[in-house]
């Protein structure tokens, strides 16, 4: 077979995927950018020609919009507290499960992974009942250690922590698996050498495990952060963004503006701001990683 037909076969194999990505991903991304500079609204939905270019107007309005700042603050709260907490729990679980002393690892791993595979909406509904201030099982158990009933989802102070707690429970199993894989890649002789020098467990963790895991940790932090910035179903199902907008996330705000009020230009600008935030933070994390490696 000659080289030309070989190359054309490659393009044939690629074309369905490239075409689908071009039409249903790349064009929409560019269209969303264009849209964010227009006043596309419910009237434009009926007739495209009603949409007009308004330059940066949407972005200017967003920066003056208290609800945007509120949703940004809430989303950051979720990412900055929930992200590291999830990663810490994942790492802890991975360390425990990698211990030589533990048997039945497969079963524990399976159990810890169960929340990951279950449907987020179903789990959010389940936790809404768990958090019920009157009948919920969480307050019941907390009662044993003398904690008075908390109105988890009805109190603006507790609603976001409650969503974070559920997210940690739901997600830690995923990163745990990645950490277990990362731990398996650390050469055993590093620990043996440290043992000969009589290093403590904590010292081994600090000077062998953590540095050797750094690439895994970076990967895990980036995917967790990207996922957590897209917080939506939990507040949609559990709190509708309340109480007092304390759980209104950027994506929930975007969804409301775009698909409930049909302010699609404004909503597209919100989506792009989310994208830019995710992009900047990923780049910072990558850069930090490179610098610590030097």
């Amino acid at each position: 077979m000659d080289k030309r037909s070989k190359i054309s076969a490659a393009y044939l194999f690629l074309s369905p995927a490239l075409l689908a990505i071009f039409i249903f991903f790349l064009i929409p991304v560019l269209a969303a950018l264009v849209m964010s500079f227009t006043d596309f609204d419910i009237y434009s939905l009926g007739n495209l020609s009603y949409a007009r270019f308004i330059g940066l107007q949407n972005y200017i309005e967003i920066f003056k919009d208290p609800l945007f700042w509120q949703s940004l603050k809430n989303t950051f709260y979720f990412v900055v507290v929930g992200g590291p907490l999830s990663i810490a729990v994942s790492l802890g679980a991975a360390l425990f499960l990698s211990s030589r002393l533990v048997r039945f690892k497969g079963i524990f791993r399976l159990v810890y992974f169960m929340p990951v595979v279950t449907t987020l909406v179903a789990v959010s509904i389940l936790w809404r009942f768990i958090y019920n201030p009157q009948f919920g099982i969480l307050n019941y158990f907390l009662g044993f250690i003398g904690v008075h009933p908390i109105d988890w989802l009805g109190n603006p102070l507790w609603a976001m922590p409650a969503i974070i707690l559920m997210a940690v429970w739901k997600n830690f199993g995923y990163n745990m698996i990645i950490f277990i894989a990362g731990l398996q890649n650390i050469p055993e002789d590093l620990y043996e050498a440290a043992n000969l020098e009589g290093a403590s467990e904590w010292n081994k963790f600090k000077s062998i495990t953590l540095p050797m895991l750094a690439p895994t940790t970076l990967f895990v932090s980036i995917i967790t952060m990207i996922g957590y910035f897209q917080l939506f179903a939990e507040p949609y199902v559990m709190t509708q963004g309340g109480p007092l907008n304390s759980t209104l996330s950027i994506v929930l705000y975007m969804y409301r503006e775009g698909f409930m009020w049909w302010n699609m230009g404004y909503s597209a600008a919100l989506a792009f701001i989310l994208f830019i935030i995710i992009l900047i933070i990923s780049l910072i994390q990558l850069k930090m990683q490179r610098e610590t490696n030097l």
Binding site: V29, A32, I226, G258, M264, A268, F275
Partner: peptide, 11 residues
């Protein structure tokens, strides 16, 4: 790295 939400309005 592009969040899916960006594509949803035009899609």
């Amino acid at each position: 790295i592009v969040p899916a939400q960006v594509t949803m309005l035009p899609l």
